[in-house]
Design a binder for these strands. Structure first.
Lengths: 122, 122
DNA sequence: CCCTTACTCAACCGTTCGGTTGAAAAGAGC
DNA sequence: GCTCTTTTCAACCGAACGGTTGAGTAAGGG
């Protein structure tokens, strides 16, 4: 149970029920019971889901008498977007470079004198 | 095993080994053996990881004799970022509105006549 | 003071997950 | 035609997951 933060966030959001809870918490804070209401599972199951979200840092909980209001912590999203954007950018850069190569290797039309000279020939 | 696409992508990236493979594939395509080399696990385990990444749409594979080069498909990232940004924005909007409320409810100083009138009473 | 509400803890259950080993499939090279 | 390389398939294993039920805890409300 000692996974790195990024793994915990991704794993937490890999469950559709938990994603839906996050979606609803983005609109307003809610108690465990309120969160459990729409789903066809026990309150205990929802409580477990919330613990997963909490340990992923996606959610915090306060006290209001017996109620434990849940609050969405949106900053953790940055962790994911940072990772995703990093490699997405890297991949796109690679494709861009590939496009350049393809663009520099034209039709090889022997009747076209502008294509007979190649850039960086070995 | 019939999970929705978003769950599959999140689940695929919840594993640090798979994330590392994606990171390396962002630099260059690689074969199963090349991908397996740095890790202290069997090639079969890596093959399984690749199947998970493939079913998540993160990766495609072609043929080169016995080799099966793996290629990163970066478009799937958009699926995640779209989801994340949607709810991040929603959450931030909510906080912004909360700030507005707090700003419109000033110090409540009884000696200050400008704070005695409240908007939308009752 | 009960009693009800709101929630968590604990134990259990079936399934999935990440890993293993062993065998098979598919090609290239001698 | 063998053999070596590369990869997958299949069976298995322990741990984690998502769910359940049942009991326990904490705090208001009659």
């Amino acid at each position: 149970m000692a996974a790195d933060p990024l793994s915990r966030v991704f794993a937490a959001l890999a469950d559709p029920t938990r994603r839906d809870m996050v979606a609803r918490l983005a609109v307003a804070d809610a108690t465990v019971g309120q969160l459990a209401e729409p789903y066809d599972v026990s309150v205990q199951a929802v409580s477990k889901h919330l613990r997963v979200l909490q340990e992923a840092g996606l959610v915090t909980r306060s006290r209001d008498a017996q109620r434990r209001p849940v609050h969405l912590e949106a900053e953790v999203f940055d962790l994911m977007t940072a990772w995703i954007e990093r490699y997405r950018r890297r991949a796109e850069e690679r494709y861009r470079r590939l496009d350049d190569v393809l663009a520099s290797l034209p039709d090889d039309d022997p009747t076209d004198p502008t294509t007979t000279e190649r850039g960086t020939p070995s």
